[in-house]
Computed example of a mutant assay.
Amino acid sequence: MYDAPWGGSEVLWSDVAAEALAQGHEVLICTHAWPELAAPLKALQRDGAQFYLRPRYDDSLAFRVKSRFKRVLNGGELDEIRVLKKFAPDVVLVSQGGWNDLFYHAQVRAWLRQKPYSLICHNYQDPVRLNEFQREQFTTMFAEAQEVLMISANQLKTIRRQLATELPNARVVQNPLNLPTSYPIAYPEADTSELTTQLAVVASFDVDRKGQDVLLEAFSAEQWHRRNWHLNLYGHGPDRTYLERLIRYYGLEERVTLHGHVSDSSRIWAKNHLLVLPSRIESGPMVLQESLLCGRAVVAADVGLVRMWLDEGETGFIADASTAASLNAALERAWACRDKWQSMGHEGYERTYQRLENKPAAALLNQLIEVASRHSIAK
């Protein structure tokens, strides 16, 4: 992922790396350089993973001159390619924060053609404008991988439509979840006219993807001023100042609190009655499954895997889109039966637990080892 040192898209590949190290494999991690490694990456480093930290692009003249000079010294070859060649991996896992990131790393992609590799797509865009050349190029890139891993069936269906091709080597995988030691979490005291209903949004402060801005617009509607509720936003990110300004703009200072990131999800669900997921675009919002497993009903916009895991009127409520009108309609349906949220959360836990893959990282590692083995035999 390019725009932050850590996020949900980094969990699957880093867990695979940890599992590989635990089994005695050698691991090289190529990721973006930040002023400080994220804590999970520090743990991988302590456990013996080798690292190449890819310089993040800087549009300053000094950065561009330095980068060009280094490439000239290396005969045009990136340092990353030199490191990869020296490590000589048997198999490669390429994790994309988006869905077509690899296409824009031409040297890495060219080098990968010599190696068996799997490609993870953690997001998608819809709509997206593609010309025929791009469509052919992206289709070729996916075909070059041994496997293309998607996070939701909706994401896979959408990308197939956009490329007008079947992608026969694509399949859907589950992300590892961030769950408390024990779950579900005891439900907070039931709502009464005296007790404030607590609603949670657990997402980075990145409104173009996570949609907190339209949710605040929805809650600015007149009927919500007459109701006893409080919205808790958990996370961090580049749009915190904008969200603070928007809260003031809508006059919601007494209704909304920005809490920052909370790593222990049990603290969130010990306080909150309902999850709200207003994301505009997201393939695999892990917080949806995590909140269901913790016994909370959910109001969610229809993105990514939402319809795979959430059942309208039974374990939650689905907004057609991340718009103020759609979210308001779903929130109205939820508010009308908030006396059922606790039983809906219990049902959500039961249904989600039955479908949960136990060790997704170990399963993916086994698949990578099998890919490497097939490639070795073929040689």
Score class of each variant (00 low, 15 high):
L119I: 05
G98L: 04
H105R: 13
T139Q: 07
R135D: 02
Q114L: 10
K115Q: 13
C121K: 02
R113N: 12
C121T: 03
E132I: 02
L112P: 07
F133N: 08
Q137R: 14
R113T: 11
L102M: 08
Q114R: 12
S118P: 01
F138T: 00
Q114H: 13
Q125P: 00
R129P: 01
P116G: 05
P127R: 12
D101M: 05
G98N: 11
W99G: 01
T140W: 06
V128R: 15
W99D: 02
F133Y: 10
F138R: 02
W99T: 01
D101Q: 10
L130G: 02
R135C: 08
F133C: 07
M141Q: 10
V108H: 11
Q107Y: 09
R113Q: 14
T139R: 11
M141P: 04
R129L: 11
V108T: 14
L130T: 07
R109F: 15
L102Y: 07
N131E: 03
D101N: 14
G98D: 09
Q125D: 13
F103C: 03
M141A: 05
S118L: 12
Q107C: 07
R135P: 02
F138L: 08
R135G: 04
Q137I: 05
A106E: 15
F138D: 01
G98C: 02
Y117L: 11
Y117P: 02
T140I: 05
L112G: 03
N131L: 04
R129M: 08
S118K: 03
F138S: 00
Y104M: 05
T139C: 05
Q134F: 07
R113W: 11
N100F: 03
L130R: 12
